[in-house]
Amino acid sequence: MQEIKAPWNIKRELLVKSEDETNPRYGYKPEERPYPDIIKFGIINLDKPPGPSSHEVTAWVKRIMEVGHAGHGGTLEPI
């Protein structure tokens, strides 16, 4: 059978089309975002406990972090 690689096992190369520089006056490197942007453009990689639903856990994080919106990437429901 033909092996299909998982996306996390695929390596890509970065190729140059046209070298260019970026002006430090605009934007931030993602890992250097100041507050409150660090939260506004942030993701928490949560270790979900058993019991509550993904939806409930997301609502808790939203309340703890005092944010207006939060959403989860892929439900983990009871088996």
Binding site: P49, H69, G74
Partner: peptide, 26 residues
């Protein structure tokens, strides 16, 4: 079920559509 549950905040909720289509490992 337990395990990895990425939770996106505020503006970051826009990337969720990419995560929903991403592969998973169990």
């Amino acid at each position: 079920m337990t395990g990895v549950l990425p939770i996106a905040l505020e503006e970051a909720t826009k990337v969720i559509q990419a995560l929903l289509k991403a592969g998973k490992e169990y």
